[in-house]
Design a protein around this nucleic acid. Structure first.
Lengths: 248, 248
DNA sequence: TATAGACTATGACGCGACGTGAGAGTCAAT
DNA sequence: ATTGACTCTCACGTCGCGTCATAGTCTATA
């Protein structure tokens, strides 16, 4: 009848420590103890435990569960509906992060493609030398998502995008020995910002500035971008930060 | 040029405490300090901070961010793709919880409808006296979701479901003075389990047992179920626990 | 020039749900 | 009597800060 910790733990698939913890916080006190201090769980304790685990599976906090199981007048249905809202909100936040991640990945893909050695014979966005490697390592889904927008463009759009990017790169490369705060540099960065937003998804100014730092902090990007001119990556990063600060 | 904590904090929209924390954990040490110990952040520090906030927005841990920004050879793109997987996994877990919550809500709705005083003139599942109140309090979406499956049933299906539920309730009510472990009781509970799975979504045995406890721990359910016979809720809860334990 | 007010510093607890030892006692079987 | 499986009670670590508490610094005004 009365079970000890390990029996209970094995029966319901939790750890002994968890039972100790539930005892500590007053969520589930065993009905009895042996003279030597061993916890003894009754059938009633087991039933309460089942309730606890049900709500735990649903994502409730132990505090909430405690309130719920200790009061028969507590409206479980209302609690569930409120809890549901919380879960939806959590999911929304994760979706937000996923969107931002995807945006940044797309941006990186575009960047890599743009600055490859193929650039002097026109960019072919439907072929990416990094892609096979990427597919092998991370599976198709991630790569597909990252490529989705680029892949949907036709040849004409691709060429016009690559030309636009190249134009801005070249302009910035020419300006890179001046100040990143100059009117010309800031204008070019403004176009850069507009171009990214149009083609890769919209960035907050904060994120835009962070992106600039990414150019200089990752040697792969630095290397690629600097093909347009030594020190261009650093120059762009500085200009992007200034742009972000001035635009608000 | 060199900014103090509050200036930086206000500029990028974080708290002073956060800057202290980043200093503490070695994520962002300011380049300088005044003689009295005030932190002084350089432009370079600001740029690093922008990077940090970019990755923080994407949901990276501060530890990961630290690794990332401290090594130019760290592959940010790879990190992003791995991170993306983590986010997807997190979302999957939340979706799982949402499904369980919805299932349980549907079950509660059905329970409430079943055991209302209308039961002697046939159940009308398209009308629920609790529903208006529910809509007022929690908005339409939650209620709609909870009702979705029931609402889609036609009159014939509804009547057959209500009859099935009533039959099982009555059988269990007749058995309630015997043992919840008896063959007859367990058979009836088995049908109950099958019926729930068919009409409200599938439950794990664990969850099924937890559900039984819900009948007795929430006085609304106890009251409603006991309309079929005093003590029926408790009897069902016991029988469901036994059923779950024996079925694995 | 004294004081108020805005800012800065360090230190330390708290949160949530346990995991992971450490050190020590209990119990049944060999 | 020993072994091995089990039990107990501390107590620290996790993660990203929020929130005091206490104390020092700097500037502008009465």
């Amino acid at each position: 009848m009365a079970m000890r910790v390990k029996e209970v733990a094995d029966l319901v698939g939790i750890s002994v420590r968890t039972l100790h913890h539930y005892d500590d916080i007053g969520l589930l006190h065993p009905d009895g103890t042996t003279e030597s201090g061993y916890r003894l769980y009754s059938d009633g304790n087991l039933e309460t435990l089942q309730q606890i685990l049900l709500f735990r599976e649903l994502g409730f906090s132990l505090q909430r569960i405690k309130e719920i199981i200790q009061s028969p007048s507590f409206d479980r249905k209302e609690a569930l509906i409120l809890h549901r809202k919380m879960l939806l909100e959590k999911r929304r936040r994760i979706d937000q992060m996923l969107e931002n991640v995807d945006r940044t990945l797309k941006h990186m893909q575009g960047e890599m493609k743009m600055t490859n050695e193929e650039r002097f014979r026109g960019f072919d966005f439907s072929h990416n030398p990094y892609e096979k490697e990427a597919r092998d390592r991370w599976g198709d889904e991630a790569v597909d998502t990252a490529n989705a927008k680029l892949a949907k463009m036709n040849k004409t759009e691709q060429r016009s995008l690559s030309e636009a990017m190249e134009t801005i790169y070249s302009r910035l490369a020419d300006l890179r020995h001046g100040s990143p705060a100059s009117k010309e540099a800031q204008a070019a960065i403004g176009e850069w910002y507009a171009m990214l937003n149009k083609n890769f998804g919209s960035y907050s100014l904060q994120a835009f500035a962070g992106l600039g730092q990414l150019y200089v902090s990752d040697e792969r990007f630095t290397e690629n971008i600097d093909k347009f001119g030594e020190g261009l990556a650093q120059f762009m990063a500085d200009a992007m930060t200034i742009f972000a600060d001035n635009s608000k």
